[in-house]
């Protein structure tokens, strides 16, 4: 699953210069302005979760714990968690849609809390328990939130569904008997363009108190 290929996290500024062996850090050191940073280049690759000293802008070795499994990869510090998950680790369940903390399609759990993977750097997520849509079922047995999505026909095109399921799971993990209003509050960071909200709310409401997959 892990390809471990360092890739650029975004299109702009991507690395023609970098491919020629240029990095901003070595450039700065070369002209003598990096006094505070000199020496850190040595530890860039081996630093892992210990970033007391600056790392980057070149790819840095990190370890992400996703659905209970550790993945080693190299990312530039600017790479978001959604890009690392989708582009480098093949976790394509979380969707990249608005890419600006608005729509919720990229929702994953970080240490048990729902979070937008588009507005979290991958490097920040080290040492935290990352849970994605891929990790919530047990083999063929769906998580109750997923099961009730099916029963209530809570999706149309389905593109927002993984994010909604994760946000819904966050609600039922915390509260086994939420009111419908609490369900609405918990889902307020997710948007469905097809307008399947009625089914989504009902699915999460019914899944509460039904345990895990």
């Amino acid at each position: 699953m892990s390809s471990n290929k360092p890739i650029e996290g975004s299109v702009e500024g991507s690395g023609a210069e970098q491919r020629k062996g240029f990095s901003r850090r070595t450039f700065i050191e070369g002209i003598g302005l990096g006094a505070g940073a000199v020496g850190s280049v040595v530890v860039t690759d081996g630093a892992q979760a210990d970033h007391h000293v600056p790392v980057g802008p070149d790819p840095v070795s990190i370890t992400l714990n996703i659905n209970g499994k550790n993945h080693d990869l190299k990312v530039e510090p600017r790479v978001t968690l959604i890009d690392a998950l989708r582009n480098q680790l093949d976790y394509t369940g979380a969707k990249k849609v608005c890419d600006r903390a608005t729509c919720g399609a990229c929702t994953v759990m970080l240490d048990g809390l729902p979070a937008y993977a588009c507005t979290t750097f991958a490097i920040e997520a080290q040492g935290r328990k990352i849970e994605t849509i891929e990790g919530i079922s047990a083999g063929d047995k769906m998580h109750p939130v997923q099961q009730y999505f099916v029963e209530h026909d809570a999706q149309q095109c389905g593109f927002c569904t993984p994010g909604f399921v994760m946000a819904g799971k966050a609600i039922v993990d915390k509260n086994p008997r939420p009111s419908m209003s609490e369900v609405e509050d918990g889902l307020c960071g997710n948007i469905c363009r097809c307008g399947t909200y009625v089914g989504v709310r009902q699915a999460v409401y019914d899944a509460a108190g039904k345990g895990s997959a």
Binding site: G13, A37, V60, R78, T80, I123
Partner: peptide, 15 residues
């Protein structure tokens, strides 16, 4: 997104 360095200090002094 432009290139950035990243640092995670553990103390106020280091920050």
């Amino acid at each position: 997104m432009h290139w950035v360095d990243y640092q995670r200090p553990e103390s106020l002094d280091a920050a």
